[in-house]
Nucleic acid binder design. Structure first.
Length: 586
RNA sequence: GGGGGCGUAGUUAAGUUGGUUAUAACGCCGGCCUGUCACGCCGGAGGCCGCGGGUUCAAGUCCCGUCGCUCCCGCCA
C-alpha cells in the first residue's frame, strides 16, 4: 500500500503516530524555511508541514517545486496543532502531519483550470478534462450522492423482494417514440441492432416469465436533440411488478423513494404522496408536472370575458389568467419583457394585464374589464393590490404560456421554499392524443392498459379514454413515468388498430411481445425513475451532467475522447457499409 | 429544423462614440519571508482578441459569412 491512512482519517487520537498519506497537492504555502502543503484525497484534506533551519535542505527544495494537483506520497508524524493554529473549518483541523519524507508520484503540468469549487469554467473545458473536474470536492460529493442513491434504491427494492436482473443492450428497434441508436451487425451483414430506449418489452416478458418483481439500473438510449436535462444515454431505475394495480406500484415506489431520501438526505417524506388527475393538473397549473411548492393557480374566465368589447378576449377560444397576490412587486417592465417573453415561447401572442386599485381594475386592459368589475372580482376573488395576467388563445397555449409565467414569477418573487420536496403523482392521462393528420397517437406508449371504466369508448371516442398511466413529479420535475400494461393480445391488437399501425409493421416490430401474451401472460405494471434527475435534485444541481461521470456536451460530443468519430475503412468494409455523408470535422 | 446568448493570456473576466505598447485577478516562472490555511510582499513570462472576408487613414470594437460552445422551442411516451 502506498498509504497507511486517508487524508480525512487523522485526528488527535493519531498524535505521535508515524503515518503515510498519498494524494494530490491541494495547495502549498511556502513561507521561506517553513512550508505547508495540504494533501487531498477522496476522504478529505490534511495539512502537512515542513520546517528547517537549513535553507539548502533537499526536502525543502523539493516541496518548493510542488505544483497544485501533483500526485505525492508524504510520510511523517502526526502532531496536535497549538490552540491558535487550529482550523475549525477543516475536518482534520486539530492536527497536522510533520513531514519527514516526500515523494513525487507524478508531477502535474500547468492546469487547464483550478481544481476548486468556486471556479467558473466553460462546461466544454471541464468535460475535456473531466478527470480533473471530478477531483473538485463538489463533484466528489455529487458522485457520492449518486452512489448512495443507488445503494438506497437497491436496498429498498431488495427488501421488497425485487430481483435485480439485466436485459439486453443490443435489441430489436422498437416502435417507441424516440429515434433509435442503431448498431450494425458484422456477423449478419445488412442487419442492425438498436440500443434500447428502455427495457420496456423485456421487463414485461420477465413478468410473463414469472419473475414477479424485477428492477434494474438500466441505461436508456435516445437519439434526439439534447438539452440541459437531456443526454443521449441516461440511467433509469427501472422496475416492474406482477399482479398489481396502480396503487400497488405507488406504494412500492414511495417506499423506495422514502428510503432514498432518508438515507441520502436524512429527510423523512410523508407516508403517501399526493395524487392528482391529469385534467386537474392542467386546470390548476396548466402543466402536467406542476411545481407544488407554491400556489398562484390558473383560472379560466372565458365565459365571463367573451362578451366584453375587447376583440382579443371575445374572439379567443379560451381566456385564462393568474393572480399575483402582491402585484406591486411586479413592474410594468417585468410584464412586458421578461414575463411576456416566457409566454411567447409557448405561442402566446400577448400577455394582457391589469391591477386592482380602489376596488376596480386599473392599468393595462382595465377599461374593458371594468365593464364587468363586480363579476370578475367575485369570480377571481380579487383583492386590493392584486395583479392579474391573462392569456387569450387555445386552451393549450393558455396553459403552456401561463404555466411558464407562473414558474417565472414563483422564482422572481421567491415564493419557492428551496428546502421543500413536493412530490405529486399525476395520473389518469389520456391514452391517445390527436396527431397532425387527425390520426390517434399514443400519448405515453402503446403498451398502456386503458382504465377499466373507459374501455367502452375505445371504438367510439378514443380521445375520451384514459390510461392507467402515472408520472411522479418532484418540485416540477418529472421524475418517473409508469403504467399498468396491457397483458392480452386482443386488447393490444385493438390499441394498434386505433393508432393505425399496419398489421405487418406491428408483427415485424414486436410480434414477439404479442406472442408472449398468448401463454398465460399475467397482469403487470411498473415504472422507471430518471436516476440522473433524481440525483441532480438531491445534489441541488440544475443539470444532470453535474451528477454523471462522463456526460457528453450539448452537441452529443464527448470532448475528452472525441467521440463520435469516423469509422476506419476496414471496419466499414467488414460491416458492408458505405458512408454517404462526408464526416463532419469535430 | 427554428430562435436567443457567448467566443479577448493556462483560466475567469474588463476593454468607453473605432484612436498610443490590449488591462486585471487567479494560475505559471524567479526572488524574499518560521505558523500559514484563498498566506503575504517584490519582480517576470505569457495574446492569430475563434476563423475568413468587408468598411475605414485606423477594427478586439462596426458590417457580412463561418466555426465552436451554451440556453430554449420543435422533437424526446
Amino acid at each position: 500500500m502506498y498509504r497507511t491512512h486517508t487524508a480525512g482519517a487523522l485526528n488527535l487520537s493519531h498524535v505521535d503516530q508515524q503515518v503515510t498519506l498519498a494524494g494530490w497537492v491541494d495547495r502549498s504555502r511556502d513561507i521561506g524555511q517553513l512550508c505547508f502543503l495540504t494533501l487531498r484525497d477522496r476522504y478529505g484534506v490534511t495539512q502537512c508541514v515542513y520546517e528547517t533551519s537549513d535553507s539548502e535542505d533537499s526536502t525543502l527544495s523539493l516541496l518548493k517545486t510542488l505544483t497544485n494537483e501533483t500526485c505525492i506520497k508524504v510520510t511523517g508524524k502526526v502532531r496536535a496543532r497549538t490552540e491558535k493554529d487550529i482550523n475549525p473549518e477543516m475536518a482534520t483541523g486539530t492536527i497536522e502531519l510533520v513531514i519527514s519524507e516526500v515523494e513525487i508520484l507524478n508531477k502535474a503540468n500547468v492546469l487547464p483550470f483550478q481544481v476548486r469549487d468556486d471556479i467558473s469554467v466553460s462546461d466544454d473545458l471541464r468535460l475535456k478534462h473531466r478527470y480533473l473536474d471530478l477531483r473538485r470536492s463538489k463533484m466528489q460529493r455529487n458522485m457520492l450522492t449518486r452512489h448512495r442513491t443507488i445503494q438506497a434504491a437497491r436496498d429498498a427494492l431488495c427488501d421488497m423482494g425485487f430481483l435485480e436482473l439485466e436485459t439486453p443492450l443490443l435489441v430489436r428497434s422498437t416502435p417507441e417514440g424516440a429515434r433509435d441508436f442503431i448498431v450494425p451487425s458484422r456477423t449478419n451483414p445488412g442487419n442492425f441492432y438498436a440500443l434500447p430506449q428502455s427495457p420496456q418489452l423485456y421487463k414485461q416478458m420477465l413478468m410473463i416469465s414469472g419473475m414477479d418483481r424485477y428492477f434494474q439500473f438500466a441505461p436508456a438510449f435516445r437519439d434526439e436533440d439534447l438539452r440541459a436535462d437531456r443526454v443521449p444515454v441516461h440511467t433509469q431505475i427501472d422496475m416492474e411488478m406482477t399482479f398489481v394495480e396502480e396503487k400497488d406500484v405507488f406504494l412500492a415506489v414511495e417506499t423506495m423513494v422514502r428510503k432514498i431520501f432518508q438515507d441520502v438526505k436524512e429527510v423523512s417524506l410523508p407516508e403517501s404522496f399526493l395524487i392528482m388527475p391529469y385534467h386537474e393538473a392542467m386546470e390548476r397549473f396548466g402543466n402536467d408536472k406542476p411545481d407544488m411548492r407554491f400556489g398562484m393557480e390558473l383560472k379560466t374566465v372565458t365565459s365571463l370575458v367573451n362578451d366584453l368589447d375587447f376583440k382579443v378576449f371575445s374572439e379567443a377560444e379560451c381566456v385564462r389568467c393568474i393572480v399575483v397576490e402582491d402585484g406591486s412587486k411586479v413592474s410594468r417592465k417585468d410584464i412586458d419583457s421578461t414575463l411576456l417573453d416566457k409566454a411567447k415561447i409557448y405561442g402566446a401572442k400577448g400577455l394582457a394585464w391589469s391591477r386592482i386599485k380602489n376596488q376596480e381594475f386599473s392599468g393595462g386592459v382595465a377599461k374593458f374589464l371594468n365593464q364587468k368589475t363586480k363579476e370578475l372580482m367575485e369570480a377571481l376573488e380579487l383583492k386590493e393590490g392584486n395583479l392579474i395576467l391573462f392569456v387569450a388563445d387555445s386552451y393549450q397555449v393558455c396553459c403552456a404560456g401561463l404555466s411558464a409565467v407562473r414558474l417565472a414569477l414563483g422564482s422572481q418573487l421567491e415564493l419557492i421554499d428551496q428546502s421543500q420536496y413536493a412530490f405529486l403523482w399525476v395520473n389518469d392521462f389520456p391514452l391517445f392524443e390527436k396527431g397532425d393528420d387527425d390520426t390517434w397517437i399514443a400519448m405515453h406508449h402503446l403498451f398502456t392498459h386503458p382504465k377499466a371504466e373507459d374501455m367502452q369508448y375505445l371504438d367510439s371516442d378514443p380521445g375520451k379514454v384514459r390510461g392507467q398511466l402515472y408520472d411522479l413529479v418532484l418540485n416540477g420535475v418529472e421524475l418517473l413515468s409508469g403504467s399498468i400494461r396491457i397483458h392480452r393480445a386482443d386488447l393490444q391488437k385493438q390499441i394498434l388498430d386505433i393508432v393505425g399501425m399496419p398489421k405487418e409493421e406491428a408483427e415485424n416490430k414486436f410480434g414477439f411481445l404479442m406472442d408472449s401474451f398468448q401463454y398465460g401472460a399475467p397482469p403487470h405494471g411498473g415504472s422507471a425513475i430518471g436516476l440522473d434527475r433524481l440525483v441532480a435534485i438531491l445534489c441541488g444541481e440544475d443539470s444532470i451532467r453535474e451528477v454523471m461521470t462522463y456526460p457528453c456536451n450539448n452537441q452529443g460530443i464527448f470532448p475528452l475522447d472525441g467521440s463520435p468519430a469516423p469509422a476506419d475503412q476496414h471496419q466499414l468494409d467488414e460491416l458492408g457499409l458505405i458512408v454517404k455523408a462526408p464526416a463532419k470535422d469535430i
